[in-house]
């Protein structure tokens, strides 16, 4: 399946990176004073703000033996190329909120805070591919800033597939242009220090022979990100 030309003959990608390179990551903790923890993360042109409130008492209906992790993902109306009409509440944001919750619940020591709740709010200021990954990474930093006990850092990364002279070359940290080109996008949220996967999602089709190599590339990306943000 010769996909679209994502690699040049010199083996460089559309934005000049090599296949195994991440985009530039810059981050800052404690951007705001009111939330218990906050973080700002830039991954290339994708820019995300995360805020953590809690742990605080959960509302009566939500109480359980483990902490309730409440996530809300919203995108600024000016974050994408075409203006969005609603910042949140659409299906995509709701799905993103669920995925965030799954990845972050795996990392938080939920058994420490029975009958409590942690609120994690994500605001995407600029989306240029990999918004989910940047959100997970920013949320991890915000949780660290808030002092919430974690089993391990949770990092997320995407990987895609391209071909160079007939050989498979998995791409790391897919940008918006590469996403839009229509190739496979594999999103992995993992706990790199334990090597386990908290969430995995794939779109488009990929031959199972190559799945292993794309997945290991994405896992390598998660490890690189952990080194970068710690």
């Amino acid at each position: 399946m010769p996909g679209p030309d994502l690699l040049s003959s010199q083996g460089l990608r559309l934005d000049g990176r090599r296949p195994n390179e991440l985009r530039r990551i810059r981050c800052k903790l404690g951007v705001f004073t009111q939330p218990d923890g906050s973080a700002y993360l830039e991954q290339g042109n994708t820019k995300v703000l995360a805020a953590v409130y809690g742990p605080h008492q959960a509302s009566k209906s939500k109480r359980s033996e483990t902490v309730v992790v409440n996530c809300q993902y919203s995108m600024a109306t000016f974050s994408t190329g075409e203006r969005k009409n609603r910042p949140r509440g659409d299906r995509k944001s709701q799905e993103m909120s669920l995925h965030l919750r799954q990845a972050l619940t795996a990392a938080i020591k939920t058994e420490l805070y029975p009958r409590s709740q942690i609120d994690i709010y994500i605001e995407v200021l600029q989306a240029d591919g990999g918004a989910y990954c940047a959100s997970v990474n920013a949320a991890t930093l915000a949780l660290v800033d808030a002092g919430v006990p974690l089993r391990a850092y949770v990092c997320a990364c995407t990987a895609s597939m391209a071909w160079q002279d007939g050989d498979p070359a998995p791409l790391l940290d897919v940008g918006h242009v590469e996403e839009a080109a229509g190739g496979v996008v594999l999103t992995v949220a993992s706990l790199p220090s334990t090597g386990s996967i908290a969430l995995m999602e794939m779109s488009h089709r990929l031959h199972s022979d190559y799945f292993e190599s794309v997945l290991s590339r994405a896992m390598q990306g998660c490890r690189d990100i952990e080194v970068n943000i710690t």
Binding site: L49, S74, A76, Y121
Partner: peptide
């Protein structure tokens, strides 16, 4: 003009 109160500001702004 469109104003969006982000939940980052305070948890009261969550949802609508």
């Amino acid at each position: 003009f469109f104003v969006d109160c982000s939940a980052n500001a305070t948890p009261e702004f969550e949802g609508r």
